[in-house]
């Protein structure tokens, strides 16, 4: 999974496979960080309920 694992080889299989994996993981990670971060920001700094109405 990580380049320092014994099994890691710098070859096409690992590029493709782990490329896909880390791509997906980073999207999820970044997405969630954004959501949580923004939610925290919104909650703590901005006025509450500013978009209460936008939401269904």
């Amino acid at each position: 999974m990580f380049p320092f694992a014994f099994e890691w080889i710098w070859d096409m299989g690992h590029y493709v496979f782990h490329g896909g994996l880390w791509y997906a993981l980073s999207i999820i990670g970044a997405g969630m960080t954004y959501c949580i971060g923004k939610a925290a920001y919104d909650t703590l700094i901005q006025e509450k309920g500013s978009h209460e109405d936008e939401h269904h």
């Binding site: 703590l44 700094i45 006025e47 509450k48 309920g49 209460e52």
Partner: peptide
């Protein structure tokens, strides 16, 4: 009350 922003002044210290 929080929603109304009445305790806004408290926020920074809380944080």
């Amino acid at each position: 009350t929080a929603g109304k922003g009445a305790d806004k002044s408290k926020e920074p210290s809380n944080a």
